[in-house]
Nucleic acid binder design. Sequence first.
DNA 1: CAAACTCTTTGCGTTATCGCAAATCTGTCT
DNA 2: AGACAGATTTGCGATAACGCAAAGAGTTTG
Lengths: 252, 252
Amino acid sequence: MRSSDAGGGVGGAMRRLDRTLIADMEVFQGATAEMLDAVLADARVLRVERDMAVFGEGGEAAAFFLLLDGYVRVVKTTPAGDQVIMRYIGAGQLIGIAQAIGQSTYPASAVAAVDCVALAWPGSLWARFTAQVPGFSAATCRTVGRRLQDTQTQLMEMATEQVEQRVARALCRLAQQSGRPTDTGLQINFPISRQDIAEMTGTTLHTVSRLLAAWEAMGMIAGGRQRVTVTDLARLQAHAGKRVSDASGAGV
Amino acid sequence: MRSSDAGGGVGGAMRRLDRTLIADMEVFQGATAEMLDAVLADARVLRVERDMAVFGEGGEAAAFFLLLDGYVRVVKTTPAGDQVIMRYIGAGQLIGIAQAIGQSTYPASAVAAVDCVALAWPGSLWARFTAQVPGFSAATCRTVGRRLQDTQTQLMEMATEQVEQRVARALCRLAQQSGRPTDTGLQINFPISRQDIAEMTGTTLHTVSRLLAAWEAMGMIAGGRQRVTVTDLARLQAHAGKRVSDASGAGV
DNA sequence: CAAACTCTTTGCGTTATCGCAAATCTGTCT
DNA sequence: AGACAGATTTGCGATAACGCAAAGAGTTTG
């Protein structure tokens, strides 16, 4: 069980932050230059080391964050102690937005998959942003909505597909969303263990290991310690789609 | 495969709608009496028969709805044709709010579990509501956020729990959320088949049938054709929590 | 009121996947 | 460099759950 304290990072530099850090973000499209500066003036720079928590499930939602660099995994833990990785989030996204959904505690933990840099705002400022920045609320609503859709899709797959398909699909998604092109294929841009993949797909590291080994033998992926490179995305996607009994579904 | 056409219902009465229909809703808390009347003036009353779709997955999001009476199930269909029930929604909730999340098509279908009554607004009005009704956007964001949290919890359970626990938990939720108290216990307030329960929990109707039969023999539930009454909620909850190997989890 | 459906129950063989155990491999720290 | 800790691989027995099949109940329809 990987662990850490929440809010581990240390406050950052006093140097004035550059407006362009946030000017392109969907949620700040309605903001004037002055607003952006005001927003940044209230932000604190947070550095979070790999495997440290940005915030912890159940903890009081004292702040919300914008991930500037790195990747975090969003994790929930069952009463029995099993961890489930809900998603990976990359730079440019808001995280810990419990306030947006009217929650006073974080519904999940966020753990740095690599060393990360984030901006942090006190949760009390959420109301101000919502009131003062035109479109802020609507834009975060869209963000939450996208995550809802993703989660619903995952739930559907978890409910109907077999482990092999789920794992193949997870790798395809990771490769497409956060794959760094190399000469051999798309390499997932952060360290990810077999255990992590298992916790994403609702299976065990043993089963994941066996599947990856088989796929590596077939030349579809290249594995390493906490590394996965997808070398034949098309073929892997085919595995994600196949049913044991086959037969293609009817379109609607 | 249960089926139907989308938008089956027929336009409703011309009688002026009562403001109290929507005055208590969270999303309209910021609206004045005049706004409420204007909102209602644009609404169309829709009656949807049992097993008819309010809207269909993938269809153009031409309208959004407020369920006034009844229950709908929100369903997604896999490419292979398997249906998954994401949730049941009861009266007083908005459905089909694809606009809220910036989608032009519905990401899931909504099917009436019983005869339903709903208000329908053209999707184009979403922008107006957002702009004119204070707090509308923030409130819908909270609604979407709650659904996200529910879905994440379901995903976590689907990933880690066994079928028995998932089914027990689903029944507990349904009984608590939409249970009508009877002299024998909490009866789920709409017809629900073994197949439906299977589609909620990612299993087969056979397995559900076996489980319900066992629980009925133990006096925890009473079943019938498309009916389930939870007669011993506490004991059923215990089943939802138990691990085969047992051992209680550690707190955080 | 009986036919026709649909839903539910139940038996049984099959299998995907887990769970444990032990060996091997690969970075990291002293 | 050497040792250690964590990550991965792999074998094998156990089993939860599926899938098929067929029978039994409860509604709806003509």
